[in-house]
Amino acid sequence: MAKKKLKAHHIERTWCKGCGICVHFCPKQVLALDEHNIAYPADPEACICCRMCEYRCPDLAIEVECQET
């Protein structure tokens, strides 16, 4: 399988409800909640593009854009 590299996290700020599911289950602690309780990529360099945050988000608020390297 080709390795994937992060291009961007697209977070729909008006849809995110700050439930913390993506933050809790990210295997690399990439995500955090900001002062408005909305998810953001605090450490994007560590992202391995597994997309588990995208698949587990109950609000369809996060999309991980990756490129093959």
């Binding site: 729909e12 409800k17 599911i21 587990r56």
Partner: peptide, 21 residues
């Protein structure tokens, strides 16, 4: 209709997400 009416963290949204995929 988004953001949807479910509470923060409601599992029903995860089902919606998986159903679409």
């Amino acid at each position: 209709f988004f953001p949807h009416m479910w509470c923060p963290g409601c599992g029903h949204g995860v089902v919606l997400n998986a159903m679409i995929r």
